[in-house]
């Protein structure tokens, strides 16, 4: 009798495992800052339209240049956007910028950011993403912002949101879809 019960529990457990493994994974509610930012950037890429001349062919990858070069070291995108992969390219020198589709500047130094934004200012088809203060006012297209929620006097929780500068995206010849605009905290510029 005892055996039958344990055998049953055992099988039930296995069944449970098969069942749950197939399910949608529970959503994490906490994430390391740059893993979450990478998730955002992937979603940005989904809702941005590059002009055709930005890519060699239908299957060529979207190049994501990142500075500091090691900031996305641990990140690997497991999905494609349509037929395109996203490749992470560490930003080594200013020449690299030319072939980028997305440039992410993960630094807070405003002078440095301005210098890099000036380099890409006249280039087409580069989606600039940054996290420094006033990134969008300085001519960047999408700027991350942190929203703080107070837990108590000692602690607060941080979540990410983003602002968009449409004038800057127009200058770069990029079209941002409504899904992106509707989730942004602030949309500046006209369309």
């Amino acid at each position: 009798m005892k055996y039958r019960v344990s055998g049953f529990t055992f099988q039930a457990l296995i069944f449970l495992m098969y069942l749950t493994a197939g399910q949608v994974h529970a959503q994490p509610t906490v994430g390391e800052e740059y893993r979450v930012k990478a998730g955002f950037i992937f979603n940005f890429a989904k809702f941005v339209e590059w002009s055709e001349e930005a890519f060699e062919d239908k299957n060529s990858p979207i190049l994501l240049c990142v500075f500091p070069p090691d900031i996305f070291n641990k990140i690997l995108f497991t999905q494609n956007i349509g037929t395109r992969e996203i490749l992470i390219k560490p930003y080594q020198n200013d020449e690299d910028v030319k072939c980028c589709h997305i440039l992410f500047l993960g630094v807070s130094d405003k002078d440095f950011v301005q210098e890099k934004l000036n380099i890409v200012k006249d280039m087409k088809n580069i989606l600039t993403v940054g996290e420094s203060e006033d990134f969008t006012q300085m001519g960047g297209i999408i700027g991350f912002a942190t929203e703080k929620e107070r837990v108590n006097l000692l602690a607060e929780k941080r979540r990410l949101t983003f602002d968009i500068n449409l004038d800057a995206s127009d200058r770069a010849g990029l079209k941002l879809r409504s899904q992106l605009l509707s989730t942004a905290r602030k949309v500046e510029g006209s369309q």
Partner: peptide
């Protein structure tokens, strides 16, 4: 985190 939507990402504590 690329698997999450933008709305979901905005709810993730960093």
């Amino acid at each position: 985190f690329a698997e999450l939507s933008l709305e979901e990402l905005k709810n993730v504590e960093i």
